[in-house]
């Protein structure tokens, strides 16, 4: 146990912070730790959580994805067309939404790998394209999502919020097995040192392509879940999510220089960020001062969590 904590120090710190914040939130909330309160909290957290997962896959290979929000907007608009009607149709619809996200990610990956352009610039440009397509689909917010399906995804299972069940599935059903596969290890190898990864015979092009496609898949999942929560399609949602997803992965201990961190950390970071915002709401701080406090807490959290200078043993290490 102690060994595990030592080798996953970043995730453990993020987890402890999250538990502390959550207990503070449930303590100050007038209705306490009821299923209702937890469900609303978990839904908000999971939207950003999935966006942070998308960002994680780009960041772990030393990239960055500025199109996360745009992919969410696009898939949200797709979802507002296809999630209505027969059960089979809706099942295909959900697959189509995630596939649309994957396609966006694949496009990013192809341009980055074969066009040899920096990810930050490519995704900046493709984000504009994705938002454009989203606007073509939904010039004004509208459309609908089947309420039964939306309820099933956003309420609770036996008192446990469905969003938390989905989070658990993402961690235990996907991430823990995935990180042991060749692709999972390849992501870390590529992020740590592209040259070393290439020289040990890893197909770096394929890994990078896969990483950005996975980012697209999770962006699609985030857009899908967002549609379940809001039950409409809106092309204008992209702005906040991209930047928040970057803040979330950093809070969760994922290093922007690549190769360090995990999906669990990214999820924890997103949950921390959303819990801070919820905590503000019930904290009694005047509402006009809340954005300032949110910013201050974000800056403090990033300064403490991201400041490698505190851990450096000599002055040269900080320039690594």
């Amino acid at each position: 146990m102690l060994d595990y904590m030592r080798s996953n120090r970043r995730e453990v710190i993020a987890g402890v912070v999250l538990v502390a914040l959550l207990s503070a939130y449930l303590g100050t909330h007038p209705r306490g730790a009821s299923t209702y309160v937890m469900t609303i909290w978990a839904n908000q957290c999971l939207i950003l959580g999935l966006a942070a997962c998308a960002q994680f896959f780009a960041v772990v290979v030393r990239g960055i994805d500025l199109s996360v929000g745009a992919v969410m907007a696009l898939t949200n608009c797709v979802a507002s067309y296809v999630l209505e009607g027969s059960a089979v149709g809706m099942a295909f619809g959900m697959v189509a939404v995630v596939a649309a996200g994957a396609l966006c990610g694949l496009l990013n990956g192809l341009i980055i790998v074969y066009g040899r352009i920096q990810p930050i610039v490519v995704t900046l440009a493709t984000a504009s394209i994705f938002v454009g397509i989203a606007l073509l689909l939904r010039p004004t917010p509208g459309g609908a999502v089947n309420y039964d399906l939306a309820d099933a995804m956003t309420l609770d299972v036996l008192g446990i919020p469905t969003a938390l069940v989905i989070t658990a599935v993402a961690i235990f059903g996907f991430w823990l097995p995935f990180r042991r596969t060749g692709l999972g290890l390849g992501l870390y190898a590529l992020g740590s040192s592209e040259q070393a990864a290439f020289q040990s015979g890893i197909n770096t092009r394929f890994i990078r392509l896969a990483a950005f496609t996975l980012a697209g898949v999770f962006g699609g999942l985030a857009g899908l879940f967002y549609s379940f929560v809001t039950t409409t399609g809106d092309a204008g949602i992209s702005a906040g999510f991209t930047l928040n997803s970057i803040a979330a992965v950093v809070l969760g201990g994922v290093l922007l220089r690549g190769g360090v961190g995990s999906l669990i950390g990214a999820l924890a970071g997103a949950f921390i960020l959303k819990t801070i915002a919820s905590l503000m709401f019930f904290s009694g701080i005047p509402s006009l001062a809340q954005p300032l406090f949110e910013g201050l807490i974000l800056a403090a959290a990033i300064a403490i969590g991201g400041a490698d200078v505190l851990r450096a043993r000599n002055k040269l290490e900080v320039y690594a």
Binding site: A299, I302, G306, V309
Partner: peptide, 14 residues
């Protein structure tokens, strides 16, 4: 030594 991408983002939100 915080990555500029997140630090300036935090400054922006402050």
């Amino acid at each position: 030594r915080i990555p500029s991408m997140v630090w300036t983002l935090a400054v922006n939100s402050m």
